[in-house]
Nucleic acid binder design. Structure first.
Lengths: 340, 340
DNA sequence: TATTAACACGAAAACGGTTTCGTAATTCTC
DNA sequence: GAGAATTACGAAACCGTTTTCGTGTTAATA
């Protein structure tokens, strides 16, 4: 087993000092052509590669970024992650992922694990539990240590840092308006228990559109479900309410609504038009294909990584630092579950 | 900005040596109760946490594992990753993910980036391009350096290392048999261009079942598509072949087959029974719900992480090391797209 | 020829820990 | 009360780099 070779080995072998080897490999002109040639040839021959850990220790830069997200199986987070990873890699950074699994404790533990030198900065979406508890001390902790932090999607006003969010309210407004404009009057909203900042924003947009369309908001037409995959409430809801349009805050609810509605004899989009959030595979491969809101996770991830790396590399001036909130524009992808 | 505190700071402040601080914090009984109390209290007060990088450099262990996968949006890889992350975290390891995007070059670059001290071991599924090229030098490189490697799902015989695979052939056999046993005679196979070891194995199982069922293999009934989302070939295929059963090597093909078949007037499962691979959300939320093969990605990931960490922590005896190949048993999840 | 400049290299500190070993001071043993 | 054992701590090496600074040798300059 050919162990990794170090500067020391090369130095010993070539009977020069470690500093000479180091400089020669950096092509410093402190070192003569001859010596450089000799050392470089030797290094290449033995496939010398500097040890990242040593370099990290030396310049207090790991070139790693930490990503803490609630879930990695969820399509949206996955695409964001892909965006992060792609951009980060292009800039020479590696990405360490920790999944909080919507748990406050795991979020805290994960951050602590990483905050002790393993990473140069964080990109995070808050766990559901964290948003519920409204306890952000672990975030304060790291920002006070001077570790750059970028929040995306699930953010909070209580932490001063860069953020990347979707124009949730606006796009929900736009989507609802499009339902109204196609003649829908009894428009349901299927959402989650409102712990998530995003669900709230979407409901705001929904209500605003109703108001603009002169439709009175009706709590009866709002179904609040606990979790992503807890869809049993949908069937009774659809049975006991006459609706002709529907906005869901995710794909799964929307798809399930369509399937229940079809089973109940409605045709889509004529009897009921449906719009979902998240442009994942479910939307593309459902029958009918779901009109949905593309959140452009890749873009969000890329933006988050960009903001973070900028913060990391430009030693910002300590005190009166400026924080930006970038808004990613969602788009309505029209497919077969809505009219025109 | 409260910068991170080091042993040196504590030592200076308390007027003791660095070694004393280090030992005191480890509760060494080389140090008197009094001194320990004083140092520990101080450390706690200033929230001292040892620097991971320094520790890594010292004991040549990073407690990081590198995961290189072709795709992170794909459901199967996502679940494997979740399994890895969960287990690794439990054992105190962090996970660095790199996405090869099915590209040989990116796979090589990613491995090189990580192999210089950033990680203690690799978990990988080979990129499509790598399997095509059959060039595994980058894998040889790392194993020769003594870096433990575990391959999963997309593996190769040419590299001696631990592996975790699915019983692809067996389960494909079983699935096909179940179609045959429910009276199906003209069973199609929808697969990918056979660069992937797994597609090959599945076809083997399919053929074996046909043989056992005394059905002659018919190349006409095999559709080989280039990529996961390249599904245009399906409609002509279904139009020009009379089939009554179908096995697909992934979810997407299967779902799309169902939707095309339904559009062509077939009823599922009576006219055509369909079985897919991958028990993702598509299968659960399609209409009808897809009978599919659960690959238990979480389990594969967990097993891969377990094997890897064992290798990392038990300094294996260099030369005649033993490598194991763990087989994860897939299961057939019966839903609505097959009979009974 | 004496002085200076340029060249080519090495010693050593530093990054932040861990660990081995040496040693004063105290306590124990006979 | 002398020698041995124990206690409590510090010095220093080490992990693998980078980088500053010092210095001996040679070449250029006056």
């Amino acid at each position: 087993m050919r162990r990794k070779i170090t500067l020391k080995h090369i130095a010993r072998e070539l009977e020069v000092s470690i500093s000479t080897v180091s400089k020669a490999l950096k092509n410093s002109n402190e070192i003569s052509r001859d010596t450089k040639d000799k050392i470089q040839a030797f290094a290449k021959l033995y496939n010398y590669k500097p040890n990242n850990i040593a370099i990290s220790l030396k310049n207090k830069r790991t070139k790693n970024i930490g990503v803490v997200i609630p879930d990695i199986v969820h399509h949206f987070f996955t695409t964001v992650f892909r965006g992060i990873e792609k951009y980060a890699n292009k800039r020479g950074y590696n990405v360490i992922v920790c999944v909080s699994d919507e748990s406050f404790d795991r979020e805290v533990i994960n951050m602590e694990m990483l905050a002790n030198g393993s990473i140069d900065g964080f990109i995070m979406a808050l766990a559901g539990e964290t948003q519920l508890k409204k306890d952000y001390n672990h975030l304060k902790e790291v920002t006070e240590q001077g570790i750059p932090l970028v929040l995306f999607d699930r953010v909070t006003d209580e932490i001063r840092c860069d953020k990347v969010v979707l124009n949730d309210a606006e796009i929900a407004f736009e989507a609802t308006m499009s339902l109204i404009n196609s003649g829908r009057q009894r428009i349901a909203l299927i959402t989650t228990d409102n712990f998530f900042s995003v669900s709230n924003s979407r409901e705001v947009g929904y209500r605003k559109a109703l108001k603009k369309g002169n439709i009175e908001f009706n709590e009866q037409l709002v179904l609040r479900l606990p979790y992503d995959e807890d869809i049993d409430g949908i069937e009774p809801f659809l049975k006991s309410n006459k609706i002709d349009g529907l906005l869901s805050v995710n794909e799964i609810f929307a798809i399930h609504c369509m399937s229940v509605a079809q089973r109940l004899g409605y045709t889509i989009p004529n009897d009921i038009s449906v719009i979902g959030f998240t442009d994942g595979i479910l939307s593309k491969y459902s029958t009918p294909k779901l009109t949905t809101i593309a959140q452009h996770g890749d873009k969000m991830g890329e933006m988050a990584a960009k903001l973070l790396i900028e913060k990391i590399e430009n030693d910002f001036d300590e005190e009166n630092e400026v924080f930006t909130t970038e808004i990613i524009k969602a788009t309505l992808v029209k497919r077969e579950s809505t009219i025109n």
